[in-house]
Each structure stands twice: as C-alpha cells, then as structure tokens.
Design a protein around this nucleic acid. Sequence first.
DNA 1: ATTTAGCACTCAGACAAACCGAGTGCTAAC
DNA 2: GTTAGCACTCGGTTTGTCTGAGTGCTAAAT
Lengths: 340, 340
Amino acid sequence: MLTERQLLILQVIVDDFITTAQPVGSRSISKKETITFSSATVRNEMADLEESGFIEKTHSSSGRIPSEKGYRFYVDHLLSPLRLSNREISTIREAFADKMMEFERVVQKSAGILSDLTNYTSIILGPEVFETKLKQLQIVPLNDQSAIAILVTNTGHVEHRAFNVPVEIASTDLEKMVNILNSRLHGVPLIQLHEKLYSEIGDLLKSHTDQYEGAFRYLQAALVEEQPTKLYIGGKTNILMQPEFRDLDKVRSLYATIEKESEMADLLRSDDEGIHVRIGQENPYDAMQNCSLITASYRLGTDQIGTIALLGPTRMEYNRMFSLMNVLSKHMTSTFRGWY
Amino acid sequence: MLTERQLLILQVIVDDFITTAQPVGSRSISKKETITFSSATVRNEMADLEESGFIEKTHSSSGRIPSEKGYRFYVDHLLSPLRLSNREISTIREAFADKMMEFERVVQKSAGILSDLTNYTSIILGPEVFETKLKQLQIVPLNDQSAIAILVTNTGHVEHRAFNVPVEIASTDLEKMVNILNSRLHGVPLIQLHEKLYSEIGDLLKSHTDQYEGAFRYLQAALVEEQPTKLYIGGKTNILMQPEFRDLDKVRSLYATIEKESEMADLLRSDDEGIHVRIGQENPYDAMQNCSLITASYRLGTDQIGTIALLGPTRMEYNRMFSLMNVLSKHMTSTFRGWY
DNA sequence: ATTTAGCACTCAGACAAACCGAGTGCTAAC
DNA sequence: GTTAGCACTCGGTTTGTCTGAGTGCTAAAT
C-alpha cells in the first residue's frame, strides 16, 4: 500500500528526526544522496504519507515528524540492523569480563551499562521467584534479645532479617529448631514457605516442645517476608537530557510513574520473550505518552525470566537499542547459565 | 552592630523570601503587622542592611533577597524554634512505631520520611565501620562449583558474596576451614579483617593442611570486599520542585555532584556532632553554590556516628528543618540504642 | 502521466518598541 | 528621626514586524 518511494521517504524522515529532533522538510530530504527526485515530488509524497497517517506536521507550514503509526511501521518494517560500535562492544565485554557471581551485581551493572551507553533510562526486572527454593536457613544470635535469620536460596540469593528473641528461649533450643526447620524446608520454593510454615511445621514444632512456640512465632515473622520482585533503575536522570523533556512537569509525572515499583513491574512482566517495543499511546500510563519502552527478556536458569527495559522518548534510536539490548540480554543469560 | 529594627526587617525579609521565593519590597514589609513604620523608613534601613552585606538586590529596582551572609546571620541569631505540625510528628512516630531491627531498614525509612516531609533531598551516611566486628562467618555451598560466604557483624549487618570453589575441595574441608576461621576471627573489627587474613590466618591454615590453600585464596577474595560506607539518598527528584532549579543545567550538575558517592560521604563525614548548616559558598562544590546542606549526626551504639543531611536551595525553611532533623536523629539514635 | 519549477501563502521564532508596575533613592516637609 | 512624594530604574509582558523555512497548488516540462 505504500510505494517504494514512500517507504524511502518515511525512512529518511524517521532517521532524520531521530537524530535531530527537528521536523524534516521536503528540501532537506531531497538533498539526501539517496533521494533522486525533487523537493516538490517529496512534498507530494509527504502529503500522501500524511493522509495515511504515517507522518504529521507540528503546524501548518512545518516540516514533518513521524506519527506513532509511523514509528510503529518503521520499527516493524524499516529497521536496518546496526553493527554496534567498538566502544559499545568493549564496554559490555569488559563489564562482563570479571566473573560476577551474584545476581544482584550482574543486574545492577547491566542497568548501569545500558543507561550509560544509551543516555536513556534503564529498568531491569529481577526474575520471578517461582522456582527459587530454600537452600539453607541459618540463625545467628546477636545478643540475648535479638538474632538474625538468614535465608539462602538455590540461586544464591541471600535474604536476611533481624528479629527479637524472647529471653526465655535458650540458644541451644533455637539451634535445634533451626535444624528441624532446615531438614523440613530444604528445597521448598520460597512462595510456599509461608504456607509450609503454617501447616506442617507449626504442628511439628509444637509437638516437639511446647516451649518452642514463642520462638516459632517470632521466627515466622522473620521468615515470612513478602519479597516483591525487585526493580532496578539506572540513569534516571538521563531523562533530563532529552529535549522532549524540557518541560519539568512532564519529567515530574514521568518520575512519579516509574517510581511506582509494583506497577512498573507488572508493565514489564506482561511481556513474553524476545524484544518488544511499546510506542507512545501503546503504553498504559499517561505520563508515558511521549515515550517508548523497549523490553527484552533474559533467562536465569531454565524457568525464570526477567526483563530488561529501556525508557526513552518515542524518538528513540531504535536500531541501536535493539542491538544493544539483544547483546546485553544474551550476556546476562549466558552469565547466569550454569549457576543455578 | 545591627539595630533592633534592622534585625526585625532582616528577619521579615528572610522569612518572606523563604516562603515566596520572590524579592521582598519595602511596601510589603511595611504592611506586615509587626512593622509599625513606613515603607520609606524600611527603605532606609534596607539600604543600610544592603551596605553591610546582609541583603542584596537582584537588579537596580528590585526588592531585596537575603545574601549568604544574611542567611548565615539568620541561622545563627534569628532562628525561631518551630513546633512541628501534628502531621509531621505523627508521620515520624508511625514510621518508628513498628519495631525495626535492621540498620538498613531504619536508615532507608528515615531518608524517605525526611525527603517526603521536606520536599528536599535527603542524604544519609551510614555509620563508620570502625567498631563493627565480625560476629560470625558462614559458608553455604550452592553446588559443587560455588558457595556463598556470609558475614555477620555485631551490629547485625549482613554481608554476602558468592565465590567459586575449586572442585578439588571437599565441602567437609571447607567446613573445617570455616570453623577455624570463626574461632580466630570472631570479634575482629572488619577493617582489620584483611590484614588478619593475610598475616596470622594464612599461615595457620596452611600449616593445617596444604590443601586448604587453594580454597583459602578463593575465600579471601570473597571476604576481603572493600565495604565503602553507604550513602542513602532520598527524594532525589524533589530538587526539580524547587523554583531555583528551573534551569536544567543546574539540576544536571547538581545530580552529577551528589552522585559521586565517595566525595559526598567525605563531605558529610567531616562534620562533628550536633546540627550544622553549610550555606551556599560554604559548600565545596560549584554545583552546590545555590544550595544549603543541613547535617545532623546520629549514633549507633557508643562510638559509631552517622550523618543525616538535607540538601535544598539556600532559601530553605531552616527552622522547620532544624526541628525535623533534630527529632529524627533522636529517633534514630534511640532506635539503635541497646541493639549493638 | 509524472515530474518539476515557480509562486503565493503560513507560521514559529527572533527582535524591537512600548508599556506597566513594583520597586528604589533622594529630598523636603513634618 | 520619620514620612510623604516624586523621579527614576528595570524586568516582564504585550504588541507589531520581519524573516526564513516550510507548505500546497498550478502550470509548464518531460
């Protein structure tokens, strides 16, 4: 439905606007060396492109900018794969060179790289905890009133929580209790911990010694910590560099939106595998109307999938971002492979 | 050297400017009910105040704004103690109501409260680790290639680090090693851990079994983690709400400054006990020329002192901030008391 | 039947002049 | 010593003009 020439023009407009952030006029298009026809012809074609909704004017005599439909078409059909620059490649390679062993560290670093390399804001969603299982539970008494419960999962995640110990409980009792718990809870998925504690173990412990009950209640409070999937945000202030966010009010409302952790998590989570883009209105939140969100998934182990995302203005360097996120998610996945 | 009347006028100017952010004119001053004399008199006095450097004009026919010297004088001599509002008091009280047992949690929450209540940016420096001692070291093997070293301090701080385990080391050996380490390192201040590991323990372990050496090296890498004093920043985006930061360039350079963790840490650390203010030029960094930094200390245990700070424009609500930080630092200190 | 040159038209942005009003300093009267 | 009055200053806003980059349309050229 679009002619060869219109495709070409659309491509030029989007490419140009992405780099300059200025409306693109017919004259500047006709001067490109890929364009062999005059500005008048371009104008005619642009009128058609506008009629079909791929581009629009900012005012009656302005050049054209891509509409959201235009961006969508560009992303779906006109994207030219881009080789990453040496700088980009080496930055990533170096970052992953030293053997990182902790999930958090890898994710933090990845978020940092991504935002530094792109000048956009990176958001990384930790993998779902579905399959995370308890590896070991430990209790370290601090003094006679308090102790720390430490919980290690099979993915190497460490969670800890201080709690009060009622004075009447001897530390040897506590130790016994931990031993029992460990034998019973080893391998239990974290999300079932709560329920397991209530049902089986509660009874079990009670039958062992009545005396444990008090301690158990305390311990329970320490263990049953809701553990929301973590969101890592990098380069939040990069938003300020984008000319489309000259308006402080927009910045503020965007910040307000991305700071709602649980909602952002839902937003990212809903995506399935591969790289996806949500352009402007395709995003559910008002504050993100002028934004695009590129998401890509990475895997930790076999089942767990997390998401890395990049938030920027709709006028984003889509092709570079695609390559970058592709490479990064692969690096992350391969770093995680063989850990779990 | 300043007359009673000049003090009064200065006070009015600062108070007014702090709330409105607009230069204050003689007419609006003379209309205040505390002012019994005419605007012409005010003008005369203001000319004197300007000559002595306490106030200044933004242009030849503008009202006056406080100079830094003016702010300094105001803070030192004119500050009227302010009762906190019920809302503020209850917010703080509620936050500290549920018994928090972990240092991080308390600090995070405090930073949140502070920035929410003030609309400025809060910066909290964790206490120095001078006296933090190793309570217990534990190792949790994840699989046959890796394990997690967990380090618990007497303050309840938990540090963990995954590391590779050479295949040739049996987990029982590892266990033995940990036992030895625990008996030797218990109570050792964290900052000496490095040195201790090198000197005594290295030899000790080696003499025990040569085989340990490899594992020891790996473990060492895991344990000797530089542990920079942590900086917690809250309400970073509040800066955007201040009219003096309409200029994005200023915001950017300020962000760049406060994001340099180690330098900010030094800046906060240098302060001794009590509440202090650094106004404008008194701050070492260019980007903070228009800012004031209020710092207050809190104590964790007896020796450890940390700092809570509030960063805002020089036009800050000093009296409210003073009260707020005072209350908060007391809450923090008393929460920590009896923990360690 | 396309393509292009030419031309009238539009509009944002830059610039200047005019105006307004909130403020000042100064002087003279109280 | 205080105050009323007045001339003056200057930032901010409004208004008007101009310019240049852009458009759409028409008619000529290919």
